[in-house]
């Protein structure tokens, strides 16, 4: 390369160590292993075998909930006129319907029948689809609005004082009243229920996020960056948001199951989705009055709701743990 090379004398051909020359250009570069944030997140995430299992179960539930109803549509009034088909336990139901020539033995009746002779099994599958859709859509809307507004809210002091007043007032309006009135105004149905859940739902997320942003905003490195004249969008996107990724994922882990829970809760109170939309909450609230007499109508939807919420919660928590950069050692 250069004349230094000529000065190097090889004294012994068998020597294991070979002197190399100093490269001034190379030594100016910092060499570190390539680090990709999301790659590390998923490396950590998949290290835990339980996560693979949870994902497999979740994908299974997801596929069943979205594919099965296409081939096996659920109609809760299907046998409303056949009085003897109502409230049958699984054994009776299987026997009842396999005796009928037009039905034959079917997996449809494996969980018995409900108050209208409806299939509990198909009902649960269709309801699970509603619940999953509901929680994903609501979480997507509320998280997007909540995080964007929360970031601005935490960053701008003028906006903060206005938003605090609004927050204090709206947080005091009874949640159930607000939902009921909104459902009355826009009419019952899947999309109006989503509207009711998202009209003020983003507010608590934004408030939580505001506090997190404020903590990071006043850290020394942020101050230093601001002194150097970093524009606000760059501050938010490069200095603050990466720090809050694990917070966002933690939020997501609590929000997703929370919408399924609140649908169940509101249906129990008689508010929420209309009768023609199958939902876990509706099935649970219909069966709760006689849950000791007809346990097969009550416990399966409860178990499915619990399973979905627990899986979502655990996956979210584990992903949040993995997305914390401090675990990437």
């Amino acid at each position: 390369m250069n004349e230094n090379e000529k000065d190097v004398k090889i004294e012994n051909e068998d020597e294991l160590f070979v002197p190399i020359t100093q490269d001034m250009i190379q030594s100016e570069k910092i060499i570190a292993p390539r680090y990709s944030y999301w790659k590390s997140v998923f490396r950590i995430f998949f290290k835990k075998k339980i996560n693979i299992f949870l994902i497999a179960v979740f994908v299974l539930i997801f596929l069943v909930a979205f594919i099965v109803p296409i081939f096996a549509p659920y109609n809760y009034k299907e046998n409303v006129t056949i009085l003897s088909s109502q409230n049958l336990d699984p054994v009776q139901a299987l026997k009842f319907f396999s005796d009928k020539p037009e039905c034959g033995p079917s997996i449809k009746w494996i969980l018995g029948t409900g108050p209208y002779g409806n299939s509990i099994f198909y009902g649960i599958i269709s309801s699970a689809r509603t619940s999953l859709l509901l929680s994903v859509i609501c979480a997507a809307i509320n998280m997007t609005i909540g995080i964007i507004l929360g970031a601005v809210w935490g960053y701008s002091k003028k906006f903060d004082s206005v938003m605090l007043v609004i927050y204090n007032i709206i947080a005091n309006i009874p949640y159930i009243l607000l939902i009921t009135v909104l459902v009355y105004v826009v009419g019952a149905g899947f999309w109006s229920f989503i509207f009711a859940l998202t009209v003020t739902g983003w507010l608590s997320i934004a408030y939580f996020f505001r506090t997190q942003v404020m903590i990071i905003r006043d850290r020394e490195y942020s101050l230093a960056s601001r002194c150097l004249g970093t524009p606000i969008p760059r501050m938010v996107s490069k200095n603050i948001l990466p720090f809050l990724t694990s917070v966002i994922v933690t939020l997501l882990a609590t929000e997703l199951p929370a919408y399924i829970s609140s649908e169940v809760y509101l249906s129990f109170l008689g508010i929420g989705l209309s009768a023609d939309v199958p939902s876990l909450g509706r099935m649970i609230s219909q069966a709760q009055a006689a849950f000791m007499v007809y346990p097969w109508e009550f416990w399966p939807p409860v178990a499915v709701a619990a399973a979905i919420t627990i899986i979502l919660y655990l996956l979210g928590q584990n992903l949040a743990d993995a997305s914390d950069p401090r675990t990437h050692m």
Binding site: P257, Y265, I284, S285
Partner: peptide
Amino acid sequence: VIFIMAVPSLA
């Protein structure tokens, strides 16, 4: 804790 946090209160 996970049971209480995740499962619907009604259940």
